[in-house]
Amino acid sequence: MARATRPAAGSVAPEPAEAAPEVRSEATRGESHGRRVRRALLRRFRRPGALLGVVLLLVLLAAAVLAPSIRRHDPTAIHYRALQVGPDAEFWFGTDDLGRSVFARVLHGLRTSLWIGAASVGLALVIGVPLGLVAGYAGGRLDAAIVRLLEIDLAFPSILLAIAIVAVLGPGTMNTVYAIAASTVPIYALTVRSTTRALAQRDYVQAARALGASDGRILLRHLLPGVVPPLLVITTVNVGSAVLAAAGLGYLGLGAQPPTPELGTMLSEARAYLRQAWWMSVFPGLTITCLVLGMNLVGDALGDVYDVRAAGKRG
């Protein structure tokens, strides 16, 4: 589906929608393709929303990577003389009920949250992408069978599926990852499947097959690269939703468990002190919101460029 970029401020006539059709998710548009994508990306990411997203993500990623050298305090160290003090020069984000630096804990919580997000999305990709490739390429009964399986998975509202899985396996960080991955596999698989189906009809794939390339080679060399752009978009957005889902499980008492600092669990614990110690919930809350917001803004922008709709996302 073609779509226009936003008209620049002040211009009255809508811009012609020239960018989108050229930059579709295909790996075979000749040399000019890469350049066009780059140009479209540059143009899209110059807009304030997308720019904000990139800045947020860069800052947070840097904070997570550099956490051990930025923080002044150990995230588990207890300061008996500074129980629940507000932000000051010593403790930038204040201290929590146990006298631990909220700044240090937010930094480390960010690492845990990012790890959960990345691990669950990674696991879902590892399962979902091959399923989608095979279904889309093979077609016929195998395709129908895989699609039915995915529809069965999709039939369970995702948080409900996740808590049912946690009910069976028990709470904990790894089980949270499994639960979130299980509820997101169909999104990747179905996206990859539809892209693969479209690509499999393309001339270059047909040509490769005529030249006697094996199925495995076609899948890996010709089809897999083509599904990367839509996956990139969905993955970006879903790392954010995985972080939120993990936080929700943490709130229900079914997620990552303390003392591991995790943003959702921290926020959930700090809720009790909303009126007495706002800093305990505001900083982890803002961090989580900025992280997910950044993912969403970047995902949206990538989606515009690659023309992928992330609307089928599960909640």
Partner: peptide, 9 residues
């Protein structure tokens, strides 16, 4: 959990 973390520290 709070006490466990204090004992841990």
């Amino acid at each position: 959990p709070q006490s466990a973390q204090v004992v841990q520290a």
